[in-house]
């Protein structure tokens, strides 16, 4: 087994020992779908949703929630703590580079999102007839793009925040407005025009559009793709520039 695989598995094991992480990334999205799926109005098909029911849209929102919690709260706090406690520094003294630990964290979190996606869409389909996406590949691409935007922001937070606690505080501060604009509390298609247009340029809303599009088999919106790649490039580059190892 390569060092990278061992490191990723080790990060997995450590993360799964954190009950809060497991709850919010794997159980909470399922819980959300199950509760909302039993609300009668969720079965309605408002014209703004282009043929989808409210519950169909919420499958993506529930997954977006998991991505947001990982990208804005979980990962930045963990990485900032790794720096704060000298874990990255210890890595620097071994033949393994500290970058590999960051890569293992990213891989582990991405894998968690994918597991969560399978769980969410399976339960949503079996229990509430949420359609199986026309193109699963487009959905996968949508999820990956959503993660790349969210994780790049997370890396930048980890780079800028001096401690794990500050990283968590800033992440939480960003989490609520971004999740609101992405339609966690009300589908963004039902929001006033202004909020929708602002939302277009936020990563979670753009990711949400891509995931809903994949569900109905529409070709992906270029604006959403551009926005997410923009976050990846800009936040990613800034994170690389500002990341401190100690």
């Amino acid at each position: 087994m390569s060092v990278f695989t061992k490191l990723t598995l080790s990060e997995f094991k450590l993360t799964l020992r954190d009950p809060l992480y497991v709850f919010f990334t794997l159980l909470f999205p399922l819980l959300l779908i199950t509760i909302l799926g039993n609300v009668p109005t969720m079965q309605e098909t408002p014209p703004e949703l282009g043929g989808l029911r409210v519950i169909d849209v919420y499958a993506g929102a529930a997954l977006g929630l998991a991505i947001g919690i990982i990208g804005l709260q979980g990962m930045p706090a963990v990485l900032a703590t790794y720096r704060e406690r000298g874990i990255l520094r210890r890595f620097a003294t071994t033949p393994v580079r500290p970058t590999l630990l960051l890569a293992a964290q990213l891989t582990m979190n991405l894998a968690t999102v994918l597991v969560s996606a399978v769980l969410v869409y399976t339960v949503a389909h079996l229990a509430f007839d949420v359609p199986i996406p026309e193109s699963p590949l487009t959905l996968l691409l949508a999820i990956l793009l959503n993660c790349s935007g969210a994780f790049a922001i997370g890396l930048l937070l980890a780079a800028l925040a001096p401690t794990g606690k500050t990283a968590n505080a800033i992440g939480t501060f960003l989490f609520f407005p971004m999740m609101f604009l992405a339609g966690l509390w009300a589908p963004r298609e039902l929001m006033p025009e202004v909020l929708q247009r602002i939302g277009d340029f936020t990563p979670f809303a753009a990711g949400q559009d891509l995931m809903n599009g994949a569900l109905t088999g529409q070709s992906p919106e270029w604006l959403s793709i551009t926005v997410l790649i923009g976050y990846l490039v800009i936040c990613g580059a800034a994170a690389v520039k500002f990341f401190r190892w100690e």
Binding site: R85, I87, T93
Partner: peptide, 15 residues
């Protein structure tokens, strides 16, 4: 070829 033990260098709490 060098082993280093640094001050204030910790590990993850749960490992």
């Amino acid at each position: 070829r060098i082993g280093v033990q640094l001050q204030e260098s910790e590990l993850q709490d749960k490992i």
